[in-house]
């Protein structure tokens, strides 16, 4: 079986039962992606597949053959932190750090969804092509990532700062 992981083609023969999460951590020693609940409830295992965020613990590795997978190890480029990573450092978006790889990948995926003007459950006018970026939008969209340390305010600040920078969207607190 073959996958493209953080830009590199990787191969392995694994049991069909292997999740994408276990493939990353145990076959390829990419232990940045974390196993929290292993049942889709916490988001610690969030990775990007072809740019879209998914829970790697619920994904069978075999089903994702040939796809482009980005993990937290693949976010930085040329030794420079991804803007979302830098913002998490700047705004104290973590305490113990266990949920952080999932938060980072999820935030990157979420910003992509914003750029494509995809709605969320709190978007008032679903028919409108453009989304108005409010703080409650941001929190709703990140609700699939739990943080046992309760670093949510820092996480929201970090993501809001990136949005302000990249999309020119100022998000009030």
């Amino acid at each position: 079986m073959q996958w493209t992981i953080n830009g590199q083609v990787r191969e392995a023969e694994v049991d069909f039962r292997t999740s994408l999460l276990d493939l990353l951590r145990e076959q390829f020693q990419l232990s940045g992606t974390k196993k929290g609940c292993n049942q889709g409830a916490c988001g610690a295992c969030t990775v990007l597949v072809d740019g879209e965020r998914i829970n790697a613990c619920l994904a069978l590795a075999v089903q994702y053959q040939g796809r482009e997978i980005t993990t937290v190890e693949g976010l930085a480029e040329h030794g420079k932190l991804h803007p979302v990573q830098a913002a998490f450092v700047e705004h104290d978006g973590f305490q113990c750090g266990y949920c952080t790889p999932g938060q980072l990948c999820s935030a990157v995926g979420m910003i992509g969804e914003l750029e494509r003007d995809l709605p969320s459950a709190v978007t008032a006018d679903l028919a409108a092509g453009q989304i108005e970026w409010q703080r409650d939008e941001l929190r709703e969209r990140m609700s699939g990532n739990l943080c046992r340390c309760g670093a949510y305010n820092g996480i929201a600040d970090a993501i809001a700062a990136v949005l302000a920078e990249e999309l020119g969207e100022e998000i009030a607190r």
Partner: peptide, 29 residues
């Protein structure tokens, strides 16, 4: 399905119902 412009315009309850369920990661899968 929830992001489809026609669904959002013609059947907003369907988009809203989907978006009310699970998390963004799960809805992507």
């Amino acid at each position: 399905l929830a992001g489809d412009a026609r669904v959002r315009r013609r059947y907003p309850l369907l988009a809203r119902a989907i978006l009310s369920g699970a998390s963004a990661q799960i809805r992507n899968m």
